[in-house]
Design a protein around this nucleic acid. Structure first.
Lengths: 350, 350
DNA sequence: GTTAGCACTCGATTCTACCGAGTGCCAAGA
DNA sequence: TCTTGGCACTCGGTAGAATCGAGTGCTAAC
C-alpha cells in the first residue's frame, strides 16, 4: 500500500462509499487506458456493480461535485481530476510486476557491475525502457561521506589538480591555480600534508590549515579552500535521466512537451523536486501536488534508495497524470529495492 | 566562407547563373523565415532582380528539374530541397554575429572557470540559449594523453578504487575487486609500483607487469588490466547536450520529435555523428547528407575545437533543415574559436 | 528572352447538416 | 428512499459542399 499525503488528505478522510469508489476507479482505469472521457454506460458495463447507467450517472454528479471527476464540457463523459487520481492511487493495492519484467530487472542487476555512476545511469535507462516513462535516478550525495585520500597532481607548474576520494567511492577533482609557482617537490609535500590533514574528515568539517607563508603552506591552504568551496547547490548530487524522449509520446501539445523537457534539463530542479516529494512522505505526486506549475500535467512516482538504512538517493518515474500507476509504482519500488540491495551487497564484500 | 563537400559537390560544379542563384537564395531565406512554401510573386518582390513573377516562375521550373527546389503539391509555392539548402550554405558569406551575441560569448568565456567538464557543459547550455537550437559539445578524448598519476585506494579490504589522472587533466576511476585480500600496506605498495609502472604511458601502451604471485603483484596486475580494459566504444569521449527541449519547438510532428530525442539520448551515436561530419570535412550536414535516416529532417552544424593544433572535440548545433544557417554557423564557429583559445590560454599559464 | 493574361489546380477555410455519445431530469416502480 | 427506463437536450466531431485564393503552367504578344 502506498503512503498517503499527510496533511492534505487528513482533512478529507471522507472515504467514499463502496459504490462511488468502484465507479471512480472504473473511470480512472478506463481513462488511463483510452485517454478519452468516460461515460456512464461504459462504467456500468465495466465495473461489476449491477446498476444501470442512470444510477451511475447520478453518482457521478456527486463525485463531480466533490471534486473527484470533471467534465471537459457538457455532454461529454467524465475525466478524473488530480484528486480523483489521488484517491485511486491511495487505494491501489500494491501491484505485482509481470513475470517477464521481474526477470528483466533481476537479470539486469545480476549482470550490472562497475562504478556507481555507471550502474545508476544504466538503471535509469533500464527503468525507462521497462516502463515507457521517463525515469529519474538520483544518486547518493557524497557530502557527508568522509575523505579517504587526497592527492595534488601538478599538470604544469601553475596548474594543479586536486583529486579527492571519498569513503562512498566517489571521486572529485578540482583545479587549483595558486598564485605562486611551486616545485615538484613542494607539490608532493603539499599532497602529503593534505592527506594528513583531510583524511577522515567530511566536507563540512573545519580543519586547521597551516598559516605559514611558504609555498607548501600556500598550496595546502588554497587546496583546502577550493575543496571546501563547493556550493551547496552542487552538493555532489548526481542525477541520471533516462528516456527523455518518452516525454514526446506521453504528452500532447508541443508546448507541454517543451516545458517538461526544459525542466528535465535543469537537473538541480529535478533533484529537489524528487527530494521534496520524498520529504512529504509521498510516493506519488499527482498534477499540482508538488506545487510546481510547469509540471502540473505530470505525475511523478518516487521510491527511496537506502544504504545502511540511510536515505541515499531515489528512483523516480515521470509521466502524464493518466499514467499506469500500478505498473509504474511497482517497477519503481522493485528497482529501488534492487538498487538498495545492490549497494548493500557491495558492502557485504567486506 | 564555409567548407564545401569534397566529393559530392565536385561533380556538380554546375554553378547556377546569377539569377537562378538569387532566386534560390530568396526561396531559402523566405522559407526559413516563414516555414511556408514560397511563391513566385514573393520572390519577385523580395529579391532585387527586376523581373516579373512569370520569369521567376520559369526559372523555378528549371531549379525544380535540377533538384534544388520541390513542390509540396501542384499550385503551392516551392520549398528548398536538401540540395537547395546545400547550395545556399556553400555560397553563404560567412555571417557576422550580432554585437550583443559577441558580447554574450565573450562575457561567458571571461567568467567561466573550473574543470574542463564544467566548462564544456556550461558552453553547451550557453550555445543553445544563444541560438535557440540544441547544442552538442564534444570534449577531447583522453585516450591519447599520458598518465600523470595513479593511485590505488582501498574502500574496504576487498574493494579498491583505482584513480588515474591524465595529462589533459581528466580523471578516471575504476573498481578493482581482486580475488585476494590485501593489507593496507600491500595496497600502498601496489599503488607505488603502479605509479612507477604507468606514469608517462598512455592507455595504448603495453606495460611489463610483474609475474610474481604475491598480493602486491596480483593487485598491480589486476589494476592494470582493469585500467586497460576500457572498451573502445567508451573511449573517454565526453559529450554535453544543451537545450534538448528546443527539439520540441524545432520540429512539428510528435514522431519526429521523439525520434530526434531518442537519438540524442544515445550519446555515443551523437559523438560518432559529429565525428563523421568532421571527417568528411564538412561544417554542415543537411538532411540525409550524413546518411543517418532518423535525422533526415535535421541539419547539423559542426565546428572543430583544437588544442595545440590537434583536433580535440567539437561544438555542434542541431536544428531543422530550415534553420538559420548564417547565425547558427557563425555562433558555432565563434564559440569553437573561443573554446580553442580557452584551452590554449590554460596551457599558456605554464 | 520577357511578360501580361488567363485558365486551372488544389489545399485551406468556412458553413451546414447531422450524427451520436452522453448528459440531466423526471416520473414510475421497488 | 433508492433505482431505473424514458426522453429531451447539448454539443463536439465528422462529412460534404461551397468557396476562396495563392500559386501554377501555358501561351501569345512584345
Amino acid at each position: 500500500m502506498s503512503r498517503r499525503a499527510s496533511s492534505k488528505n487528513e482533512t478529507d478522510t471522507s472515504d467514499l462509499d463502496v459504490r462511488k469508489a468502484t465507479i471512480l476507479q472504473a473511470v480512472v482505469v478506463e481513462h488511463i487506458d483510452t485517454a478519452q472521457p468516460v461515460g456512464s454506460t461504459a462504467v456500468a458495463a465495466s465495473a461489476d456493480l449491477d446498476v444501470s447507467p442512470a444510477t451511475v450517472r447520478s453518482e457521478m454528479v456527486t463525485l463531480e461535485r466533490e471534486g473527484y471527476l470533471a467534465q471537459p464540457h457538457t455532454s461529454a463523459g467524465r475525466v478524473p481530476t488530480d484528486k480523483g487520481y489521488r484517491y485511486f492511487v491511495d487505494h491501489l493495492k500494491s501491484g505485482v510486476l509481470g513475470e517477464a519484467q521481474q526477470v528483466q530487472i533481476s537479470d539486469f542487476f545480476k549482470s550490472v557491475r562497475g562504478e556507481v555512476e555507471g550502474v545508476l545511469e544504466q538503471t535509469s535507462i533500464m527503468l525507462s525502457q521497462l516502463t515507457n516513462y521517463t525515469s529519474v535516478v538520483v544518486g547518493p550525495s557524497h557530502s557527508h561521506s568522509s575523505i579517504l585520500s587526497v592527492q595534488l597532481v601538478n599538470l604544469d607548474s601553475r596548474h594543479h589538480l586536486l583529486v579527492t576520494v571519498f569513503s562512498d567511492g566517489s571521486v572529485t577533482k578540482h583545479s587549483v591555480l595558486p598564485t605562486i609557482e611551486a616545485s615538484h617537490v613542494e607539490v608532493t609535500e603539499a599532497s602529503r600534508q593534505l592527506n594528513a590533514l583531510l583524511i577522515g574528515t567530511t566536507l563540512d568539517s573545519r580543519v586547521q590549515v597551516p598559516s605559514r607563508d611558504d609555498h607548501v603552506a600556500i598550496l595546502v591552504r588554497e587546496s583546502v579552500s577550493v575543496l571546501h568551496a563547493q556550493k551547496p547547490t552542487t552538493d555532489g548530487e548526481q542525477v541520471f535521466i533516462g528516456g527523455s524522449s518518452r516525454v514526446a509520446e506521453a504528452f500532447d501539445g508541443v508546448e507541454t512537451v517543451r516545458k517538461v523537457l526544459s525542466i528535465l534539463e535543469q537537473e538541480l530542479l529535478v533533484v529537489s523536486l524528487v527530494q521534496d516529494i520524498l520529504d512529504q512522505g509521498l510516493s506519488v505526486a499527482i498534477g499540482s501536488e508538488h506545487g510546481f506549475e510547469p509540471l502540473s500535467s505530470c505525475a511523478v512516482i518516487v521510491a527511496p534508495v537506502t544504504i545502511d538504512g540511510e536515505p541515499a538517493g531515489a528512483v523516480g518515474l515521470l509521466g502524464p497524470t493518466r499514467m499506469k500507476y500500478r505498473e509504474a509504482m511497482a517497477a519503481a519500488r522493485v528497482v529501488s529495492e534492487h538498487l538498495t540491495n545492490h549497494f548493500a551487497n557491495e558492502e557485504d564484500h567486506a
